Deep mutational scan, measured.
Amino acid sequence: MAAGGDHGSPDSYRSPLASRYASPEMCFVFSDRYKFRTWRQLWLWLAEAEQTLGLPITDEQIQEMKSNLENIDFKMAAEEEKRLRHDVMAHVHTFGHCCPKAAGIIHLGATSCYVGDNTDLIILRNALDLLLPKLARVISRLADFAKERASLPTLGFTHFQPAQLTTVGKRCCLWIQDLCMDLQNLKRVRDDLRFRGVKGTTGTQASFLQLFEGDDHKVEQLDKMVTEKAGFKRAFIITGQTYTRKVDIEVLSVLASLGASVHKICTDIRLLANLKEMEEPFEKQQIGSSAMPYKRNPMRSERCCSLARHLMTLVMDPLQTASVQWFERTLDDSANRRICLAEAFLTADTILNTLQNISEGLVVYPKVIERRIRQELPFMATENIIMAMVKAGGSRQDCHEKIRVLSQQAASVVKQEGGDNDLIERIQVDAYFSPIHSQLDHLLDPSSFTGRASQQVQRFLEEEVYPLLKPYESVMKVKAELCL
């Protein structure tokens, strides 16, 4: 049975990233139509530049190519590739079939990587351009969430054990800070992308030097003109047959890092959902379990974690691919890159769409948070109580021993009897502590235990987050809708 299948058929496997999760716009960027249309555009740009620099290419040939950029006979191309065992030459023939007058000058002087690699770089750039505003929107939604809850005390956790208090907004800023680093890295790697350009079979530009009869300047002009037509500021000066596969490492490393950030955020949300302090959106008709109707599973956060793990592992592909590119190139890269580049971007696209949807509907339960604080705060307040007693004339050592005994009794009630923490009640009825009984409410005010959390939130948002989001103001209103 021949390899390949009808990918629109229910009898043929289709990647869930495309069929179930990723956005239509990201799927289109990695589609065959987008790819092969870009090949034709690159052939047109090459012909236009070659004509401008004096090669015998007519206006009629150029116009014929322009008129057929979208006229792609995919069936013919597939048949040609089956016959020739070469995808680029299959599309040269297919393009030439609908451009008979231009057929002889299509791909003039070029090698397969002229269309293959340059198209990949265009796709990487455009895919990054799709991700950047999506990530900015996630940051914006979380920034709104953090600002609104900047002063809401909550129990902090280290080692997932109760620690000092923080605020809900401050905790959210930990998430935002990681995503801001990801946004900066995505922008950097996007701006650092260079075009492969017009380089020939081993990167020496020998074929173009021959076409222009040894004119170095025209060869350099050709490279520059096509690079500018493709919208790049610069091209690699040095290439082998391909652009260095280190570029793929750079791009997928940034995406993998984004995956790590999203995994951490969504894990926190899942843990908070278990504590009943916070939940992701839950639709009115949504079913959490087929057997347990009360369940409210954090399905979206779980999906993000599941896909983020996949995204983090994909960076190993370009690392290994770059390491086995012998001399000017081997074909070890080809099949692998067809999979890992598309999957990385479709996965990143999915987790950003999902995280935006989550961040637009996060639900906080202040009463649950308050109750958990009441359970733990008495123990945390013991040092403040000791200091207040010393100020009232008591002995630190005597007070410490009193607190120690009462704390152990209260802990026994919590752990052995399943009761509430009654340390404060014990202190309130103990005559030894009568000098500070009137101060206990103040000493137990949760806001006095959150330090500068709310001020940190305000400063972080104003100095770091809002300036970073400013270039994306025009796209901030787009909502994230999930079908599944």
Rank of each mutant, 00 (worst) to 15 (best):
I403F: 07
W326F: 15
L311V: 08
D182V: 02
I287V: 05
L69H: 12
E277V: 04
K134A: 10
L331E: 01
H93Q: 13
S31D: 09
E417D: 09
E481C: 14
I269D: 00
S9P: 14
S334C: 05
L130P: 05
Q184E: 15
A206S: 06
R83C: 11
L271C: 07
E464N: 05
A348T: 14
Q177T: 13
W45R: 04
R37P: 00
E481G: 15
K415W: 03
E481R: 14
R83N: 13
T58H: 11
S412P: 04
F30P: 00
S474V: 15
K276R: 07
D333G: 01
D441S: 07
I237K: 09
E228G: 07
R14Q: 15
I106F: 08
Q325T: 08
G214E: 10
R194P: 10
A150L: 05
N353Q: 08
K233L: 09
D248Y: 01
L84G: 07
S23D: 13
A143N: 08
L174M: 14
M26C: 08
V324Q: 06
I176Q: 05
I72A: 07
Y294G: 03
G109Y: 01
D191N: 10
I386M: 01
D445W: 10
T313P: 08
D422W: 10
E383I: 04
R234V: 07
F460D: 01
S334Y: 02
N353L: 13
R137Q: 14
D192C: 12
D349P: 02
K264W: 02
S290F: 02
A392I: 08
I436W: 04
D59N: 10
G96M: 07
Q41N: 12
S306R: 02
R85N: 01
V198F: 02
F232L: 13
R190M: 13
L183Y: 08
H400K: 02
Q409K: 12
V247A: 12
P153H: 01
C305G: 08
D32S: 14
Q325A: 11
F95L: 07
V198G: 11
E250A: 10
E250M: 08
Q458Y: 15
Q325S: 13
L255P: 03
L469Y: 08
R270K: 02
S23F: 07
K218T: 08
E280Y: 03
L17G: 07
R234A: 12
D87K: 00
F95Q: 06
E64K: 08
S19W: 13
L193H: 02
G231R: 08
V364E: 02
V92K: 05
Y365S: 10
A308V: 04
R374C: 06
I237L: 11
P16K: 10
I62A: 05
C173H: 02
Q285G: 14
L355F: 12
S474C: 15
A342V: 14
F449M: 04
E25D: 12
L319G: 02
E81R: 00
G8K: 15
Q205S: 15
D120V: 08
E48N: 04
E462Q: 15
E220G: 09
R20V: 00
W326L: 11
M316H: 13
E481K: 14
F460H: 06
M76L: 09
D349R: 03
V414M: 10
Q63R: 09
G361C: 15
D445V: 10
I339T: 14
Q356W: 09
L193T: 08
F28G: 07
A78M: 11
P318Q: 04
S253F: 13
M316A: 09
F345A: 12
T350F: 05
M380S: 02
N421I: 07
R337E: 00
F30R: 01
D191R: 07
V189S: 13
Q221H: 10
L186Y: 04
Y432M: 14
M316N: 10
Q408H: 11
E81D: 15
V478F: 10
A453Y: 04
L258N: 08
L53Y: 06
E228T: 13
R188K: 11
P24N: 13
I72D: 07
S19A: 08
S306I: 00
D59I: 09
M76A: 12
I238Q: 06
K35N: 13
L132T: 12
R396P: 05
N357S: 13
G104Q: 13
E50S: 08
C266G: 09
S253W: 09
W326V: 05
L461W: 06
S438F: 08
C304Q: 07
I269V: 11
Q184L: 11
Q356E: 10
H400E: 02
I373G: 04
R137G: 15
S257A: 12
S23L: 05
D192M: 14
C305L: 02
A342F: 07
L42H: 04
L444R: 02
G231E: 07
Q458L: 11
K391P: 07
S334E: 01
R270P: 05
S407T: 07
P366W: 06
N384A: 13
N68H: 09
A344E: 02
I427D: 01
T227A: 14
N384Q: 10
A235N: 13
P10Q: 15
A143D: 03
A2I: 11
L128R: 01
G197I: 01
Y114Q: 04
G231H: 12
P100L: 09
D422L: 06
K295G: 00
G240Q: 05
T321M: 13
